[in-house]
Nucleic acid binder design. Structure first.
Lengths: 336, 336
DNA sequence: GGGTATGGTGCAAACGTTTGCAGCGTCGCA
DNA sequence: TGCGACGCTGCAAACGTTTGCACCATACCC
């Protein structure tokens, strides 16, 4: 490994000069600077990040914790976080908790020890555990609000999320306009903060419109959860079903097709998030478009603002209902 | 930030003892050890990884470079790499080159400076650039072979890949058995090493079987590339088309449906990789199952073996043709 | 020409950890 | 009782970098 000492010796200067020539070029004579930089590249000098991090107290690395990298939702968020962080001169540690709350706390600790700050996306832990794990780490949450800490420290953690309430309100309005008066909701796991918000929003919107909302149950937020939910929907006599997210909605579509139910002729299906996949199936999925890349970028921006000493407030991103082929007018006869 | 000094003071011992109590418990008296560990957790002590990394010369972090995190192929690989590395006590820096060879080289440098080693998945750079970027870094390649370095150093870089030749041979055998004698191939970008291997393998297999192979062209390895390729396929009079990967195959399926072509009635379509998505479309995609999670784990194993001073050889993982609904017997009449 | 800015460079300390070496006390054995 | 051994602990150096401070030379002003 080639260090500043090697470069300094080769260039006939002190290590201070080498360091300055590379870090703050205006502070060293042009001739010296050129010689040093030339020799540095010749020797293939790469500053030791550990040493730099130790001295400066900052690693220029951030951590990202997601529940599941294979979920296209988080894949998009991860990609955006990585890109933005990199543009700002930060590298990104990525960790996947596999949806396990215990692993989550452990990973937060591990990441916090080697980074300047964390983006924690859609944590599955309870409030207490999450607060405990986040003590002393600068973090930004995605899709999760966390009130002030329980102990002495205030624990002010900004949160970036999408406007779930508005999204589901748009969904219900759309279905209402199509004539649907009995709508099923396939909720995500109860541990999901967004999930609770969406269900609550749906209830409020349904009450406003005088639509009967049938809670089909809570299901895994994956394709498999959707296949399960579809049968509940058929049994309940609803004419439309709103899924917690797109993956579930796709599972519902698949199961309905297998059971010979026409979408949207006999049943309308709506998702949430608008992952790329939603456009690739047929019929294409009507869903709420959530700006996931923006979500990731915003999270990084908030985090870096904090790291740079600034303060940063939570923010909520607007959503937009995207109508595709999976929703249509309520069937003429009774649904079942 | 709480350091060993704080713990030492609180426990009434020296920092050496604190360090030893936590790192090598058998070297310190039981009573002292318990007191130290208790106080350490009480104070919320977290060893500074930068300092440790500096002293030990090891960061216990590895880097993973992929062309596109949103590609489900790499999402699966990333998840597996992350899980395996974590199980072995390593954290993972993830970087996304966005398919850009120049960015790739830059990212390799950035990651190498802060990690013990790299997994570089499906690099898009040319051999020369890649070799240059990898000088002095311990790395493992996925889906890419790289011969000995050009300069003085041998640059022995192990590679883990799937058995592309066997995969496409199985595909061609399958199509042959179904009666197909004129098969189109929608190749990936020419910069793709796997892509070249697959095309070469197809050619060899086609020659063996006396099947006419029509090269439809090279396309982007995404859904959009597939929609483009589908029209070429229809124009060429083939009865089956083999895509570079599943994403392209899905694009082909979609385009064929829009053009009213029945699959597999009028055209058979085969993919490669077997991403989860391949089972979610209808008809489900016949494809070559590549053990992506194993690929990721294997890559980490090879890398860690090197880091631990051992040596590690390239390895090739077996594949298996998975027949689903998108392939069928050749149509009775002429294809066009 | 003497004094003072000023730009360029070097010295040395510090970041927090690990670890070789040495010291100290205790115990066992003769 | 004396001596060696051993278990436990502390001291201090080292990892590679950054940076405040000091130093030197040159240039400039009066």
């Amino acid at each position: 490994m080639v260090t500043v000492h090697d470069v300094a010796r080769a260039a006939g200067v002190s290590i201070s000069t080498v360091s300055r020539a590379l870090a703050s070029p205006e502070r060293v004579a042009a001739e010296t600077r050129d010689r040093v930089t030339r020799i540095a590249t010749e020797l293939g000098y790469r500053p030791n990040q550990a040493a730099s991090g130790l001295r400066m107290g900052r690693t220029h690395a951030v951590g990202l914790l997601v529940p599941d990298l294979e979920n296209p939702y988080f894949a998009t968020v991860t990609k955006a976080v990585q890109a933005r962080a990199r543009a700002e001169g930060y590298e990104v540690f990525v960790a996947d908790s596999d949806e396990d709350p215990d692993v989550e706390a452990e990973l937060i600790g591990a990441l916090a020890a080697r980074t300047d700050g964390l983006v924690v996306a859609s944590p599955r832990s309870g409030d207490a555990e999450l607060s405990a794990a986040l003590v002393g780490v600068t973090a930004v949450l995605a899709n999760r609000e966390l009130a002030g800490g329980s102990g002495a420290e205030p624990l002010e953690i900004p949160c970036v999320s999408v406007d779930d309430a508005d999204g589901v309100a748009q969904v219900l309005g759309h279905l209402y306009a199509l004539g649907h008066r009995k709508v099923g909701v396939a909720a995500g796991p109860s541990s999901s903060w967004s999930g609770s918000r969406r269900v609550a929003g749906l209830k409020a919107a349904a009450e406003l419109r005088d639509v009967e909302l049938v809670e089909l149950g809570t299901f895994q937020p994956y394709f498999a959860g959707g296949t399960q939910a579809a049968d509940y929907a058929l049994a309940s006599g609803v004419t439309a079903v709103v899924a917690f997210n797109d993956l579930m909605a796709l599972g519902i579509l698949d199961r309905l097709r297998h059971r010979g139910v026409d979408v949207p002729g006999e049943m309308s299906v709506v998702g949430f998030d608008d992952v790329q996949l939603a456009t690739l199936v047929s019929p294409a999925l009507t869903t709420v478009h959530a700006p996931l890349a923006r979500l990731g970028r915003r999270a990084v921006d908030l985090l870096l603002a904090r790291l740079r000493g600034g303060t940063s407030a939570s923010s909520q991103l607007p959503v937009e209902l995207t109508i595709r082929g999976s929703t249509g007018p309520v069937p003429a006869g009774p649904a079942n």
